[in-house]
Design a protein around this nucleic acid. Sequence first.
DNA 1: CCAATAGTGTCTGTAAGACAGTATCCA
DNA 2: TGGATACTGTCTTACAGACACTATTGG
Lengths: 249, 249
Amino acid sequence: MSRYDPSAFPPFAVTVDLVVLTVREHALCALLVRRGESPFQGYWALPGGFVRPDEGLAEAASRELAEETGLRAHSAPGPGPSAVGAHLEQLATYGHPQRDPRMRVVSVAHLVLAPDLPTPQPGGDASSARWAPVGDLLGPTPVEGVPLAFDHGRILADGVERARSKIEYSSLATAFCPPEFTVGELRQVYEAVWGVVLDPRNFHRKVTGTPGFLLPTGGTTTRQGGRPAQLFKAGGATVLNPPMLRPES
Amino acid sequence: MSRYDPSAFPPFAVTVDLVVLTVREHALCALLVRRGESPFQGYWALPGGFVRPDEGLAEAASRELAEETGLRAHSAPGPGPSAVGAHLEQLATYGHPQRDPRMRVVSVAHLVLAPDLPTPQPGGDASSARWAPVGDLLGPTPVEGVPLAFDHGRILADGVERARSKIEYSSLATAFCPPEFTVGELRQVYEAVWGVVLDPRNFHRKVTGTPGFLLPTGGTTTRQGGRPAQLFKAGGATVLNPPMLRPES
DNA sequence: CCAATAGTGTCTGTAAGACAGTATCCA
DNA sequence: TGGATACTGTCTTACAGACACTATTGG
């Protein structure tokens, strides 16, 4: 067999890294923290940390998220559309032998989709955390011409692509919205995540015609200006049928 | 910051596990190996093994695959539809603290889609490896009433669902086919993976009408019986537009 | 009044599902 | 000749995209 004695191998460190996405001012933004120590000291990086010996991977990701932002995330098979909380799912695992110069580190990246947070800067070590538009981060000159630490640029790109893809076939776009929202606000989420402009009338017809996607709450609001809009909350459906397809794919 | 001194933590072992799928006799089958040692001695398990200190995750998966089956797999951004080889991609990572009773093991599962192998039993330790129909494995009594070792039942289920989903939107179904194949043979792949019956006429129209999916080679064959069928090879397209959707979703 | 957003309706093209009918092999 | 599979065509329905139109607010 090809199983080996584990003690014959030097140890691996296992970490979780978080791609935390939100929509702020019509732009998809990712949470970054500034590294205070070597390597990549002073660089911007994804939040994350080491997995503790007695906790699972999702558990570690959830703990790190709470430490960095105060958000309480629920994984996919959670208690449904509950209180205030973000969506969390595993993204992918990155384990190139030289991705961390100190030692062999395997990082299990997770994706978090969060509504726009009331606090402009996330909690914890506030001065060293920020939201950055992913449009800037995915270009050739991420943050003031400096790339992200480690392979976090690649991880971020994978997370953004996952988010862009998943809101097509699932109701996850509502994870970016407050508990109650209008069709126009939901459309702005799709426009920000995909970086496109959608027809408001066709969008309204599609989204209200997909069973289980939206549940009317009865209330209305004029916070978008114009005619009062109906308020909705996320319906029970997790998979959209028919899906919301990206234009000109 | 929430980074800790790596040396302060007990070591993790990192393994790769393989969900190797193929289509044999109109059924989707997975490769299993019989464990020769404790724990779960005598149980059927997914092939896999420890990641070596100097190799990446995909590299380790590819090495294990070659050791177990003799297959040479190419990952997604590979040299295109090349010689004989299987498709390999990362599936997900499993790290429950007690998933291996010996020590803390984090396993990065990979998914392999392979054409039906000429050898009825895979190479290596031949007597302890077998193809098993996934229809049996995913039921309540996997193999002769005995579940798979560790959490491999869950990993297999995730891999099968990934395969069922990916052949909708990508040209990966051709990874189950020999280098040259007919439309009917490709349809049998879809029917085996999805466990449904498809209309041969509509399937033919869809698959030949999707640009870049199939490339005619000029040859014909009668190995399916009946009128000679045109032979195709996989075209350059990796993403299908329009997609091949599963019925009654 | 106008500007802005919400919501409805209408038309057209594409494509999926159902299924008739023809073509070409083997036994 | 019959049976099997390959392939083409036709009809109906569903839905996406484009866009006209009405409704209801605030300024």
